[in-house]
Write a protein that binds this DNA or RNA. Structure first.
Lengths: 214, 214
DNA sequence: ACAGGCTTGTTACTTGCGGTAACGCTACTG
DNA sequence: CAGTAGCGTTACCGCAAGTAACAAGCCTGT
C-alpha cells in the first residue's frame, strides 16, 4: 500500500511547512507585518510559488503564522487564569502574563493585532467585525467561558459573561498598547490600576470638590 | 500687497481640499479603507497627482479623512460626557453615543480603526504604539482628562486616570466591535452590562457553587 | 502689452508587490 | 525503462503607489 508512503510525504511536507513558517516568523519579526512574500521566500531559501503552494495566499500564510502565536499566548493565559488562587490574584496574574508577553516581543504582538489586510486582489467583501484581530476575539471568548464557568451572575449570565469577556480583553489590550508606547509606569502599577478599575474603584471614587463649575 | 491675494488662493485651495476629502469620503465609504488613489481621484473628477499635491501621500489623505470623523465623534462624546447628570447616567449615555455612532456607520468606524498602513513605499520604521488607531488614543486621553478633572482619586490620580481612560475606551471599543459583528443583544443591554462591569459587579459576584473541581 | 512666475491640471512613466503559468528536475513506482 | 508526482525555478501579468515632465490659465511687474 501507499499509505506509509503518503505518510512519509505528508511528514516531509509538514516539516517543510514548519520551516517556512519559522522563516516567515523571522522576517515578520524583522520587517513587521508588511513583510513581502519575496522577502519571506528569500529568507526560507526558496522562491515565491512554493509559499503559495503551501499557504494559498498571503492571508493564508499570515493566518497560519498568527495561529501559532495565538495558541502559545492563549496557553499561558489559560494557565494564569486557571491557577488555584483568589480571584483578584488570578486577574492580576493574567493581566501580568499578557503584558509581559507583549512587552517581551512587541513585533509579534503588533503582527497579531494587525493582520494581513493588504493585497489588491479580487474580492474584499469583508464585513465589519472580521477585521479585528482574531486573537482578541479568541481571548474574549475564552475569558467569557471562564467567567461564566466560575461566577454566579444570576439570570442572563451567559450573555453578561461574553460582554464582560470581550470588554475586559479590550481594556487589557488598549491599556497595554498605550502603555507599551509611552511607558508611563511600571508593569506592576499598570496591572494594579487595571485591577482596581475592574474592582469598581471608578464607581466608588468621590466627586472632586471645588471642581470646575460643580 | 499680495496678502489678500494669498488669502484668496488659500481659500480656493481649502475649498478644493474639502471637495477632495468629500469625494474620498464617498469612495472610502463605498470601497472600504483600501480604496485606491485612482478611484478617489476619479470620484473627484481629477487625476492622481493632484491628490498627491494636496495630501502628500496616501497616509496623508487618510489622516486628514480620519481627523474629520474623529473630531465629529469626539464632539458627540464630549457632549455626553459633560452632561449634568449622575455619574452612572453619564457613563451609560457616553457608551450609548459611541455604540450608536459605530452602529449607524460601520464603514466609517472600520476605516477609523484600521487606517492606511498599506503601500510598499520606502521607510516603514514605525514603532509599536503608533499603529493603533489615533481615534482610540485620542478618546483615551480625553476620557482620562475628564476622569482626572472630576474624580477624587487620591495620590497618583493623574496616572490612574490615564490608565483608566485608555482601559475604558478599549473596553468600549472591543465590546462594541464584537457586538457589531454578532449582535447578541440590544444596544441598551450592552450598555448596561458594560456599566455594570465598570461598577464592580465582577468583583462583587459570588463564586459558583458546584463548579468544576471547586 | 508682454515676459515671468504661480497654481491647476494633464499624460506617461517607474517601481514594487501579490499572484500565476509554464517549464525543469529528481525520484520513486510499474 | 516509461510514467508520473512533487519540489523548485524563471518569467510573466495586473495593479496600485508615487513621480517626472510637460501644458495651460491667471495674475503681476515693468
Amino acid at each position: 500500500m501507499d499509505t506509509t508512503q503518503r505518510t512519509d510525504q505528508q511528514r516531509s511536507a509538514d516539516r517543510r511547512r514548519r520551516e517556512l513558517l519559522e522563516a516567515a516568523d523571522r522576517v515578520v519579526l524583522r520587517d513587521g507585518p508588511q513583510a513581502s512574500m519575496n522577502a519571506i521566500a528569500a529568507e526560507a531559501g526558496i522562491t515565491k510559488p512554493i509559499l503559495y503552494r503551501h499557504f494559498g495566499d498571503k492571508g493564508g500564510l499570515y493566518a497560519a503564522l498568527a495561529q501559532r502565536h495565538t495558541d502559545a499566548l492563549l496557553d499561558s493565559l489559560r494557565a494564569a487564569l486557571d491557577a488555584p488562587a483568589e480571584r483578584r490574584e488570578r486577574v492580576e496574574s493574567t493581566l501580568e502574563t499578557y503584558l509581559a508577553a507583549i512587552e517581551a516581543r512587541p513585533q509579534v504582538y503588533r503582527f497579531l493585532m494587525h493582520p494581513a489586510e493588504g493585497g489588491q486582489g479580487g474580492d474584499q467583501g469583508f464585513d465589519v467585525g472580521k477585521h479585528s484581530a482574531p486573537l482578541l476575539r479568541r481571548m474574549g471568548e475564552e475569558l467569557a467561558q471562564v467567567i461564566e464557568e466560575r461566577l454566579d451572575l444570576g439570570p442572563g449570565s451567559q450573555q453578561l459573561a461574553r460582554v464582560w469577556g470581550h470588554g475586559i480583553v479590550g481594556m487589557m489590550h488598549a491599556a497595554g498598547d498605550w502603555w507599551l508606547g509611552e511607558r508611563p509606569c511600571s508593569r506592576t502599577e499598570l496591572v494594579c490600576s487595571l485591577a482596581d478599575l475592574l474592582w469598581g474603584r471608578l464607581a466608588a471614587a468621590g466627586d472632586k470638590v471645588g471642581g470646575p463649575g460643580f
